[in-house]
Amino acid sequence: MSAVTTIDESPSTPPPRDARSRHAGGKRPPGRTWRQALRRDWQLYSLVILPLLFFLIFRYLPMIGNVIAFRKFEPGGSVLGEEWVGLRYVRMFLNDPTFWQVFGNTIIIGALTLLFCFPTPIVLALLINELRGRRVKRFVQSVSYLPHFLSMVVVAGLVMELLSVDGPVNQILSKMGSDPIPFLQEAGWFRTIYVSSEMWQTVGWGTIIYLAALTTIDEQLYEAARIDGANRWRQIWHVTLPGIRPTAVTLLILNIGTFMAVGFEKILLLYNPLTYPTGDVISTYLYRMGIVSNSFSYAAAIGLFEALIGLTLVMSANLISRRTVGASLW
């Protein structure tokens, strides 16, 4: 792979920092060949064999398996499909009105999630940070993390129980004199339910990183701000918020990158044919197309499309943030 850049042990001059030497990988010990590296570190390399096999089989093979998006696949036939059909399946889903509906749903649910679930941990972290006693602070944190540790099935179960016709929410409604609402059967409620349960689950856990970032802000900055006559709000605006900005940007990038990957498991558990018009997303649609109706190639084409969008999103978000704020993931 990098045998071209065999500079060998030439201790007199450090290798020039050109593109070639950087490709050789080992910056520290200048120009060690693969053979030498293997002889020296074979025990270390031996440790990566199983993990590499794991990545190869369970992560990279499925990527290759996506060729069935362009091949005709028969259940029980060849794993990689029978014959090339070009872009047939791509054209098929581009002409499928249901696809565009679930595409729109994915974007709307993704955008709503981002809109509500990205800023709330920041706000909550700022509020928790203003609490006085250590004990109280710790208690609030512990409680708010709790929902993060629940299985999605339990979360879905809780949502269903809370919103059932005889559940607590409808109890309150009936006390206020309105009729019970079958929330989970009404398409108009699905996104609200999805986003609010998402918030319930993620907000507390999301504060951890911000609270950590808050503790790293230099106390002297606050001191200086106070001497300049800044009140509490100005301190938050001019010291606290800039202090957590890099963290916030990094998380925003991550969130944008996973924007399309709206909670497949939760939607699968919560939706039903009545709420398909608002709740069905790309991942659930391709699940039904592929696993339930056995249209593997068609579903794979949709899945590949979704994955490519995700990759594009995360790369562009990363690029933009590196250009504008100088923070990036890699």
Binding site: R59, G65, N66, I68, L286, I291, A299, A300, G303, E306
Partner: peptide, 9 residues
């Protein structure tokens, strides 16, 4: 790789 290729694998 996505759901479908994983499932097939």
């Amino acid at each position: 790789g996505g759901l479908i290729p994983n499932y097939i694998l």
